[in-house]
Amino acid sequence: MTSWIDLDALWKIVVIGLLCGAGLPAVFTLGLRTLSRSERRAAAVTPVPDAVGLTGGTSTRVQAARAGAEMVVAGLCFAVVLAAIGWGVAFIVSHG
Rank of each mutant, 00 (worst) to 15 (best):
G75N: 05
P49H: 08
K12F: 10
V89A: 15
I85H: 03
A84K: 00
R33I: 06
L32D: 13
G53W: 09
A42R: 10
I16E: 04
A69N: 08
L54A: 12
A65M: 11
A90W: 11
L19M: 09
R61T: 07
G23D: 08
I5V: 08
L82N: 00
L32Q: 13
L24K: 07
R61E: 10
T60V: 14
L18V: 02
H95T: 15
I5W: 05
E70Q: 04
F78Y: 10
A84I: 02
T46C: 12
V62R: 00
A51I: 05
E70L: 00
G57T: 14
I5H: 08
V93S: 14
Q63G: 00
D6W: 07
T34C: 09
A44H: 10
R40G: 03
S59E: 15
T60K: 09
C20R: 01
A42C: 09
A84S: 09
V27G: 04
G17K: 03
G88R: 10
P47A: 15
L35Q: 10
T34S: 10
G88P: 01
A26K: 11
T60W: 05
F78R: 01
A44C: 10
A83C: 04
G17D: 02
W4F: 08
L82E: 04
E70V: 00
G53K: 07
G88M: 08
G88Y: 04
I16C: 02
